[in-house]
Each structure stands twice: as C-alpha cells, then as structure tokens.
Write a protein that binds this DNA or RNA. Structure first.
Lengths: 250, 250
DNA sequence: GAGCGAACTTGATCCACGTCAAGAGGCGCA
DNA sequence: TGCGCCTCTTGACGTGGATCAAGTTCGCTC
C-alpha cells in the first residue's frame, strides 16, 4: 500500500480526525502495512504490540483466551477501526489476542510515531483520550452485562443491536454461531438452545444465519429481563415429567 | 480545604505529575472539595459527573448495580487515586456508582478545567492517556478473571494480591466480607464456604478478618487452577452419600 | 448486661450452563 | 455423485454457584 493510500485510510479514522493534513502525511510515511491470511494471529495474547493497529480491510477478532480451547471474544473489529491502542501507548503486552477472521490488511502506526505526535499535536491527544475513554465505558458495559444478565438477555440485546437503528425485521448474523456464542460469553450449544427457545415462543424466526424479528415488543422485554413469568422466553421450558406423571398433550 | 491544600494533594497524584507547578496552582484554584458521610452516594450509576474526582481522604467503592439489590464492585479507591476519568472526559453519564465506604473528602477537578488543561499541556495529556490505558488493561484482566476463573481461583488470587509484595504471612481483609464477595463477583455465602474450604485444607487460617497464609505453594497452585485433582481446594468436598450407601469412616 | 441489628455462617435445594456424545445438514472438491 | 469436513443441533447429565432460610457471633446502645 502506498503512503498515499495509507494517508487516505487514516484520514477516515476518527482517532486521526484532529490531525492536520501536513502531520498526517508525515505520519503516513512512518506507517507500514501488512496482510494476514484468514485465521492467522496478528497479536498474540501477552505478546508485544508494534503500534496502534488500524484495520484497512477484512475483519479481526479480539479475544481473551484460557489455555488453548476456551475463548471469550471481546470485540469484532470492522474496517476503519483501531485496536491495541492501550497496549501500544503503554508499551505493554497485549491483554488479548488479535486474529484475522478473513484475509485482512492492516496499517501499523508505530508506537514511537504515536508518542511523537502526542507531544506536539493536542487535537490528536484529545482524540486518543476520547477513544480510550470510550473503550473504558464499553468494557464497563461488558462487565455489567456479563455480571447481571442471563444468556437469554444477552442474546436478546445482541439481536436488538443487530437490527439496531436500521429497524430491519430480518437480520443476518455477521459470523459463525460459534463465534457469536463466544462473543456473548456462552457455548455454541447454549446459543443454539436459546435461539430455539426464542423461535419456539414466536419472538424470532431462525433460518440458517438469518433471523426474522417477529415480536419486537417481547424481544425488548427479554432484553430487560422483565417478566420472568411463565411463558417468558427467559424461563426454560418445563422438564419432561417422570414416567408415572401425567404429561401434557403432545 | 484551602487552594493550597488542594494543590498539595494534587501534586501527589500521578495523573498530575507532568503538570508544571504554575499550571497546578491555577488548576487548584478551579477545584473544589466536598465531604461525604459514610455510605453516601457520590456519583449515581448513570448520573452526571462533575469532573475528574480525586479522593483526598477516606475510601470509595465503585460498583455496577442491577436494580437495587445486586452489586458488582469494580474497584476500591484509595486516597490519592482518581476515578470517573472516562465519563468526565467524555461528558457522559457514569457507568458505575461511586459511594463513600467511610467518611470521605473529595477534590473535584471540573471537566472544563481538565479539557482546558489538555489543550495546552502535553505532559498532562500524556498522563491522562496513560491513566486511561491502564484502566483498560485492568478491565480486560477483570473480564478475563470473570470469564475463565472459578470463584476459588479468584479468591486465591485475591489473597495472594493482599499479601502482595509485602510477603507478610498474615493479612487483614480491607473491608467487610460481603463487600469482598461483591468485588470477587460472588455472593457472601459462597465466599464464606470457599474460605472454609481453603482453611479446611490447610492453605490458610481464618480468624475474624485476619487470614494467615499457611501454604504459599498451594495457594499459588489454586490461583492457576492447576491440579484439579482430588484433594485440591478447587474441588468441592464429596457430597455425603445417600442413606443406603456405604460411608467412609468418620 | 440485656437487647438489637449487622455481618457472617451453615445447610438444603435449585437452576443456568457447561460437558460429553451423537447425529444432521451444507459445501467444496475430486 | 460421493466423500470428508465443518458447523450446528439435540439429548442426557453433571456442577458451580445462587437462593432461601435459619442460626451464630459480635459490637453497640441504653
């Protein structure tokens, strides 16, 4: 990628919004780009970070790991977004792993360049502060959700978020269900069962990776955890009774 | 508190370390102080934040809430530390509640003053960036612990942390057990049972709010979740068998 | 020093989710 | 057209920690 192309990419990143064109051009010359194949690890958990990373194209997953198998996805990075800000600024190991979900192109803004810019470009410092502060609020929200909400509530919120402002009544899951489960802090089996439950109670319809929102009202209610009453999606269906008990009509 | 006293307080806060004495004096004149009685709420969850808050004396608890009853403590603030940085900088509602654990004295650095300082004091901007970045790493660690560690592991880590560098073999719990349980993301009943289990296996001794560390080795092992073998504190004691089953010798 | 309330302990029981183990579709590739 | 290979679904079962409900213990006030 040419320095010019890098400059164009950086220009559309909010973090660099305050930087003057002159500075931005100089900064671009100090950046370099790298390509990553689908699945390759960009930054290892606990590994060194070369600088602030900007996703130019593709998709990146930031996740915490426990040993080899357990995974908790923190964020899915879209083109034009940055990651590893905190560790780059502090020159500390990354707390999470960054891996390419699909073939991706990255711009690396070296930590030294970031620090240099910081010292004589107040608007940039301001932008960086806002980006970091925003991440803190997001992480707090993440902890809140993980601490107080059930899997069903988190899923309902997530689906609402997908529909988002678009107000579309059919949404498409952005990645595999396994990954979404990790994003929501649950196992794929649990996600599968929850989707089935939601579908069974008529709140949504599921087909492959498309979800039809059938009852916005009840979806919102499920988000809030309101109505833990019988019949609510938040309550698991009754277990089948023992062999001697009477069973409801099939 | 006099402007002079405020200045002295601020001078010992890392965040303001880079600020020149002249600037600091000017800043101090724009701050004000407030006292809070034990238990009073300083910033409500979702409430407005007047500025960066510096704890001059006392102790403050930052916690997430769900309705009135559920609580998840994020951090215990010690004198000389700051809080509500992110929300002050962004002028957004606080994601957590701040409440005085004991009678406390606070310095409020108004958001406007912070922003003004930012624009012409690069070292301060740098300090703020580092503080925010550090919080992000801490929150990631928090999510990691909450996602992958069992209650027993979190408790073991916590006790290790209390002993910390001091290497003391007797540590004192800094607050009530109920609060510590909330800090560790569990209920007080669970904490009570875990402490009993640790004590029963000879890793620690518990008396009131004092804990004697008897076996550093195994405490560290419990932290890592290593050795999920029988006899490990990480494994709950066997349930008592049914009335017809043979029972081990008492 | 009796009476109270807060903080803690202890036991019994419950439940959301994880784990383990089979299937069941899709999809590319030869 | 068939063969793996994934991803997802489904069922049976186990379990960590929450919940509910009594007790204890201790410090404090009168």
């Amino acid at each position: 990628m040419s320095a010019h192309a890098i400059e164009a990419q950086l220009a559309r990143v909010p973090l660099f919004a305050g930087v003057s064109p002159r500075e931005l051009a100089a900064l671009s010359r100090r950046c370099n780009t790298t390509s990553y194949a689908r699945g390759s690890v960009i930054v290892a958990s606990g590994g060194a970070v070369p600088g602030v990373l900007v996703l130019a194209a593709g998709a990146v997953r930031l996740s915490l790991h426990d040993g080899a198998r357990e995974e908790r996805v923190l964020r899915l990075v879209a083109p034009g977004e940055t990651f590893c800000l905190a560790s780059a600024v502090l020159d500390r190991p990354s707390p999470y792993q960054a891996a390419a979900l699909v073939a991706s192109e990255l711009i690396v803004v070296p930590s030294s360049a970031v620090r240099a810019l910081l010292d004589h470009d107040a608007p940039f410092a301001r932008g960086l502060i806002e980006a970091l502060a925003l991440r803190e609020l997001e992480l707090c929200a993440e902890i809140h959700a993980a601490s107080f909400q059930s899997g069903a509530q988190r899923l309902a919120s997530y689906i609402e978020g997908l529909a988002g402002k678009s107000g579309a009544s059919i949404v498409r899951l952005p990645t595999s269900k396994t990954l979404i489960a990790a994003r929501l802090g649950m196992k794929k089996e649990t996600l599968s069962r929850l989707l089935k439950r939601f579908a069974g109670s008529g709140i949504i319809g599921v087909s492959r990776s498309e979800i039809a929102i059938l009852d916005r009202e009840r979806l919102a209610a499920a988000t809030r955890g309101a109505a833990r009453a019988r019949g609510s999606v938040l309550v698991a269906p009754r277990r089948r009774a023992g062999p001697l008990a009477q069973t409801p009509p099939a």
